[in-house]
Write a protein that binds this DNA or RNA. Structure first.
Lengths: 329, 329
DNA sequence: TTGAAAGCGCTAACAT
DNA sequence: ATGTTAGCGCTTTCAA
């Protein structure tokens, strides 16, 4: 029988006689025929694939985000093509090229801020791009799904203050390639200000979101502890919070008895540590889902132009790393 | 100019006059031309892509493994197409189909044992398959890259014995879909036997490699602690070891002072916990690299038939969760 | 309801 | 050194 018929039983089985349909299906089974997604893609000029660019596949939050992306893609009948930029800016651009050459319908870009240097490529990209865990600062506006970082850290200090802490420090994230570092610091300053606590630069240290730099930042904080008299610290990531706890431990300070630590992310590891981490949870899976839903919509509508930052709710997960200060702070 | 010329400047630039080459390149830049990888794939009947089937992308070891896979693929000019089986057997089979339809040159399959029910699909698959972190038990022999699990756990108990522990328990992994659980238990029994310690079934509990089941397994172990008098436990994964530590902590036992715990994997989290985890390190990245090298070789040789289990070296990473028992055990 | 034919965007063999 | 042509394996008119 003709290739056209085979194609029909695969794609629009209702158009074909039940009997021939069965014959075709039998042959497919018998020959273990695997229709070429490549040829199909070329023919229909569509691959039902969305591209995903992540800064680093080993980042602990990636798995949580991917879970949502996978789920929503599957629901929309989309596959996902992954590109790991390995924390290198030029690799991210390579990723865009790679994905375009593979004719994905659109791209989800993650975590790193999309600044004006992306504009030239974004302007000619021709397919929709949506952002997750970050937002765009260049002149090309892009839809973005994330938590409200400044509000989140504001809430974090509010929480700490409500437990009697006033001398709270901050371990923030990298301010260059990553918008969240800056935003979270803003939230911290806003929080202090709201509670009438004067901001002191010696209360904040910067890391790169990873364990080691969290440890080091905490050590630097401890060097000025005599004058600072901090009782708590907010970290811009769980990993840094865990590093800070480890540092405190190595200096003979018990968490939370002697010092409180608040994380950010609520990764799987947050409940594995001793003490378990009190942290600001980001809804990673939901962010992933929403991002693909938006992207799928744009692909269906054949639009490239959409924008707006959609804030998804964060929440504080209370575990064991923060204690309420009794009476006097 | 003709499409053929464009194709040539892209693929065999040496065959084209410098001047036309420049003109073509100029046009490519100007038009932001993105050659279709789809059309190319169809034309050359090759995609330079290898398929990767993982049981769960959120598994903590996945990132470490992927790092090696990515590196080696990149070196060989291969892309990787990822399929997440989400810990469901039927999803793994779907993955095979998906990858075949996308005409990958070969497949790397991870972690779950490849038992006889894979034989029917493996026999007709037509492309090379190599295993990482697992091996094949069915009649289809496949090349496999992994640590020697029985030797590794044997070494683990030897290590514990050398620190004065004799009453050492085991938290093993799922024995059904995952070969390593069984292998590691064998290593444990062999270790005990070698040191003349009688095996007792009440010394071993089973989990599923995750934190929670590690916690629960430890709790069950503790229920018989009065008669067992264990001083140490080996876990079949870092996550379970961390769960066990947490359980011990909740029962007022300090690690390593009151009880020693040995992990397996050496994931990134192993050095983040308090106490930092002493563990058997698996060379995940190297396993990933070797697997793709083997696969690439098979693709180049156009063979499907290869086999053999290649053991990569494990090692013990000493940190803080095991203490040497002084004098009497 | 099925088949024949053209075309998707490339590459490769052949011709110039 | 470049252009022409056919064909990769599908889908999709269009015709029967």
């Amino acid at each position: 029988m003709s290739p056209a018929t085979v194609s029909r039983v695969l794609n629009k089985p209702e158009l074909v006689e039940p009997e021939t349909k069965e014959r075709v299906r039998g042959a497919i089974k018998a020959l273990d025929f695997q229709p070429s997604a490549i040829a199909r893609g070329l023919s229909v000029q569509r691959t039902d694939t969305i591209g995903l660019v992540v800064p680093g596949i080993t980042d602990l939050f990636f798995g949580e985000l991917y879970r949502g992306i996978e789920r929503a893609s599957h629901e929309s009948g989309m596959k996902v093509l992954l590109f790991d930029a390995q924390h290198a800016r030029h690799r991210a651009f390579e990723g865009f090229t790679f994905l375009r050459q593979h004719r994905v319908g659109g791209i989800i870009f993650t975590s790193k801020v999309v600044s004006e240097d992306y504009d030239p490529v974004l302007e000619r990209i021709g397919i929709p791009v949506v952002l997750a865990l970050t937002e765009a600062t260049g002149r090309t506006a892009l839809p973005a799904f994330k938590v409200d970082d400044v509000k989140a850290v504001f809430d974090a200090v509010a929480y700490l203050v409500s437990r009697g802490h006033r001398r709270v420090g901050m371990i923030t994230g990298d301010m260059s390639d990553d918008l969240t570092g800056d935003l979270r610091l803003q939230g911290y300053r806003a929080g202090l200000e709201h509670y009438g606590i004067p901001y002191q630069s010696s209360w904040v240290e910067t890391g790169d979101y990873r364990f080691t730099t969290g440890y080091q930042a905490m050590r630097r904080l401890l060097e000025h502890q005599e004058q600072n008299q901090l009782t708590a610290v907010c970290a811009a990531s769980d990993e840094m919070a865990i590093g800070a706890i480890r540092c405190l431990h190595d200096h003979g300070l018990k968490v939370p008895d002697d010092f409180s630590v608040l994380g950010f992310d609520d990764l799987g590891v947050a409940h594995m540590t001793v003490p378990a981490l009190t942290t600001i949870a980001q809804p990673f899976a939901e962010i992933g889902e929403r991002a693909v839903q938006q992207l799928v919509q744009m692909i269906a509508d054949d639009t490239i132009h959409a924008s707006g930052t959609y804030y998804l709710p964060h929440r504080i997960v209370e575990r064991e790393s923060v204690r309420a200060l009794s009476d006097l702070s």
